[in-house]
């Protein structure tokens, strides 16, 4: 791997060297390196691009890294990654895509991920999307499908920073009895970039719980759209919070939908979109920061905090 590739890899997955556990590194549309472990088996798909990741019952405190890096233009990379997580697991999964496109041709990556999380298992899924390089378009269209079995828990942390020309993100989840899904999605756009992110969460099981928090920062003339659909079919709890900060001439749209199909469902949607709060700016300025420094600190905390 060259310097640029190593830097990208570090940015999306915090990896300085090869990961210690199971991993699959994909570079410019091809396998770069892969390793399975005793508990985590990664095998390529036969009929299409992508991998199956099987995690054995009872696997605890282990991690899987599946970063993707793209350093060429004109690539249309479509991959299917399917995770099968057994019962009673506790694992960390780090995915992400870094594009550095210095050409004038478009680079596109669509990662279709599915997660089957077994009973009583706990999964933390971290996904970072970063795009660099001036001219060519950099497009990322991730789809995440999740099935949570009884009493399982999944926490998703996604981050997409400035530079992605356009992005269409879809997250679809089905929660069984006692299952919990927590999502923290942070997105920043600038210039003429746009991102649309859609959530559909089916609270199918009794005592299931979903908490989705979206923080978006839109600068320049960029555009972001957040749509969510929470469906309660049982005694369940769902909370969606969409917080947006707009700067310059940017625009943010939030479309909430909550559908309580059962009278024991408790579903909440909160959305607040506006400029940086003036009292936050004033407070930081009163501690000695210039207006610009204060704005940067507020945005950085909001996205990375």
């Amino acid at each position: 791997m060259n310097k640029l590739e190593k830097k990208l890899l570090e940015k999306i997955s915090d990896l300085h060297t090869m990961p210690s556990g199971a991993f699959n590194i994909r570079k410019n549309g091809q396998l770069f390196d892969r390793a399975s472990t005793k508990e985590i088996e990664i095998t390529p798909k036969k009929n299409k691009n992508g991998i199956n990741i099987k995690i054995k019952d009872g696997t605890k405190n282990k991690s899987v890294h599946i970063p993707v890096i793209i350093t060429v233009g004109g690539l249309n990379d479509l991959v299917y990654n399917d995770f099968y997580i057994g019962k009673d697991c506790d694992v960390l999964i780090v995915a992400g895509c870094g594009i550095h496109n210095a050409t004038c041709k478009t680079s596109l990556h669509s990662g279709i991920h599915s997660f089957h999380v077994g009973q009583n298992s706990k999964v933390r899924y971290v996904e970072k999307h970063i795009a660099e390089g001036k001219s060519g378009d950099k497009i990322l269209n991730p789809i995440t499908k999740i099935v949570l079995q009884k009493n399982s828990f999944m926490q998703i942390e996604t981050l997409q920073l400035d530079g992605v020309t356009s992005s269409l993100r879809k997250t679809i989840a089905r929660l069984g009895e006692g299952a919990t899904l927590k999502v923290q999605e942070n997105i920043s756009t600038s210039e003429q970039q746009w991102t649309k992110t859609y959530f559909k969460v089916l609270l199918a099981g009794r005592d299931s719980r979903a908490e989705i928090v979206s923080h978006s920062v839109a600068k320049g003339r960029s555009f972001q759209e957040f749509k969510s659909n929470l469906i309660g079919q049982e005694l369940c709890f769902g909370h969606v919070e969409c917080d947006g900060i707009m700067m310059d001439e940017a625009r943010i749209v939030s479309v909430p939908m909550i559908d309580a199909q059962n009278s024991n469902s408790s579903l909440i949607h909160e959305a607040a979109i506006g400029k940086i709060a003036s009292d936050e700016l004033i407070k930081l300025m009163s501690l000695g920061l210039s207006k610009e420094e204060a704005e940067n600190m507020i945005i950085e905390g909001f996205l990375l905090g």
Partner: peptide, 16 residues
């Protein structure tokens, strides 16, 4: 007092 989203107490102490 003003509250924030994502800034930690330590961050504000460092600034102050």
């Amino acid at each position: 007092p003003v509250t924030f989203k994502g800034l930690k107490i330590r961050d504000l102490i460092d600034v102050a």
